[in-house]
């Protein structure tokens, strides 16, 4: 059975916490590939994989709702929109607008310095000893416990302006929640969509602009 042991050990490792590292590696590698590749559709492809792997990391952080929202809105919506934009703006097949090598080198160096700065500052903090770690586990109810990834109800309650801790108490006022920002964001989204539709609408203004310009130059 020794020939079986490597793949089965691998599966066991994946199910017992290794999947996080696979997702992390995938997110990082695909993000680098986004920077390196020159074809914009390939960039979009790597971006899809990177965002999907990040959704996997969200799932591993017990944030199922955020992970699914990431998949639905980001990967399924925003990126489709981006690729749609690529198709609408491509003046030839497999459009490539190359950056100069010097720019890439400079960008890479600046990026590495920035990465070093961020990492050194993030790792120098002792996050573990900055308070109780159990806050995520102590809130809320559900069919699955919050510690197994069910944060839907807490999220919904937060949006409604309620705190799960307040529900049992006799407090007459609920803690301020996220209802107002939520409404503002939804109105914001609507306005933006209408604005985008207005800006992107088909119009023949090139002809008129040209004729005006030629009129001006003629006079």
């Amino acid at each position: 059975m020794s020939w079986l042991s490597a793949p089965i050990d691998a599966v066991a490792w994946l199910f017992q916490g290794g999947a996080v590292y696979v997702f992390a590696l995938m997110a990082v590698a695909c993000a680098v590939a986004v920077v390196v590749s020159q074809n914009v559709v390939r960039m979009a492809f790597w971006l899809i994989l990177s965002l999907a792997a990040t959704a996997g990391l969200f799932f591993s952080l017990n944030a199922d709702f955020v992970g699914a929202a990431q998949l639905l809105i980001y990967v399924g919506g925003t990126l489709v929109l981006l690729i749609f934009g690529v198709m609408l703006t491509a003046s030839g097949p497999f459009l490539q607008i190359k950056s100069r090598p010097g720019e890439m080198v400079l960008g890479g160096v600046v990026g590495l310095v920035l990465l070093g700065l961020i990492l050194s500052s993030a790792i120098s903090v002792d996050w573990a000893n900055r308070g109780p770690r159990s806050a995520a586990e102590t809130v809320g109810v559900g069919f699955n416990t919050p510690s197994s990834g069910n944060t839907t109800r807490e999220l919904g309650l937060k949006f409604l302006g309620a705190n799960p801790k307040d529900l049992g108490s006799s407090r007459s006022t609920l803690s301020p929640g996220f209802l107002l920002p939520f409404e503002i964001v939804s109105v914001h989204l609507l306005v933006v969509l209408i604005g985008a539709a207005y800006l992107a609408r088909t119009k023949r203004r090139r002809d008129t602009a040209n004729s005006e310009a030629s009129n001006l130059s003629a006079s």
């Binding site: 955020v66 929202a69 990431q70 980001y74 925003t78 964001v185 933006v192 604005g195 985008a196 800006l199």
Partner: peptide, 16 residues
């Protein structure tokens, strides 16, 4: 996430 979706829509309109 939601604002990124809105931002992508408006930026794409500008690009178009």
């Amino acid at each position: 996430i939601v604002l990124a979706a809105a931002e992508a829509a408006i930026a794409l309109a500008i690009a178009l």
